[in-house]
């Protein structure tokens, strides 16, 4: 079980929105990263949500600054379109790279990443939105529905070499209404690689639900950035609920 703070980064700053929109400033990435490690975070995710080339080069610099202070694993996503993008982020200090839109458009990207860097380094960021009878994959920060079934895509990604899935519920992102546990259970039944549940956490009770639904890790952003709770408080509550945690 891992508690994983997520930093959405734009122009060298942490930002956070609701359903991927309406971003607002939430601090310096390296300061946030060090604080969360100090609170007992098990891992950190940095998502580059900037849309411009300038933002991209800032993101590489952000990864470098975060790595300097961070002694726990770092997953970086956003703008990973080719193996060279992954190489750039790994050289800057990422331990894992997450592909999203580009992998949907060209699934062989996952094979390429897994072959070059290994499955343990290859993460699929899967954003899923509810539709009748299931979930479909959404891309371009949620702006575009693909028609692709999320469970089918997760299974294919695992076969192609993805070693982990960061599974975000578009419907729940930033809403604090709890993770989409049915989505987690459906994906967990389809693949044997670890799932990081994302989107909707308001408190430790939501995390317990996600872990019981089959997630190996739980991601949280706004509740931590806003200072409503700390990683330490969340982990103590998880332990009290009978979930084994790292001290």
């Amino acid at each position: 079980m891992r508690v994983v703070p997520c930093l959405d980064v734009d122009g060298g700053r942490v930002v956070k929105g609701v359903k991927f929109q309406g971003l607002r400033d939430a601090g310096d990435p390296a300061e946030r990263a060090a604080a969360y490690e100090g609170q007992g975070a098990d891992e950190l995710v940095v998502l580059d949500v900037s849309a411009t080339p300038e933002g991209r080069s800032n993101a590489t610099d952000t990864v470098r600054r975060v790595r300097e202070v961070l002694g726990i694993p770092l997953t970086v996503g956003g703008g990973v379109r080719r193996s060279e993008d992954a190489r750039r982020l790994l050289d800057a200090g990422a331990d894992k790279v997450a592909a999203n839109t580009a992998a949907v458009e060209d699934p062989s990207l996952l094979d390429a990443l897994a072959t070059t860097f290994g499955s343990q380094c290859t993460v699929l960021a899967l954003d899923a939105a509810r539709r009748d009878g299931g979930w479909e994959v959404v891309v371009r920060s949620g702006k575009e529905r693909t028609g692709l079934d999320a469970v089918t895509w997760a299974r294919e990604a695992a076969l192609r070499g993805a070693g982990e899935i960061v599974l975000t519920s578009w419907d729940r992102d930033g809403t604090r209404s709890g993770y989409d546990t049915e989505l987690i259970a459906a994906i967990a039944a389809a693949v044997s690689i670890p799932i990081v549940a994302s989107g909707g956490a308001a408190h430790a009770g939501h995390m317990v639900e996600a872990l019981r639904a089959g997630a190996s890790a739980v991601l949280a952003a706004s509740i931590l950035h806003d200072g409503e709770t700390t990683v330490g408080d969340l982990k103590r509550a998880l332990e009290a609920a009978g979930i084994p945690i790292r001290r």
């Binding site: 891992r2 098990d42 343990q120 982990e164 044997s192 690689i193 670890p194 190996s216 790292r246």
Partner: peptide, 16 residues
Amino acid sequence: PADVGGSRLVVPQLGW
């Protein structure tokens, strides 16, 4: 192993 005692093992082991 892919499973131990009939239950599926999550592989790769990613975590603490």
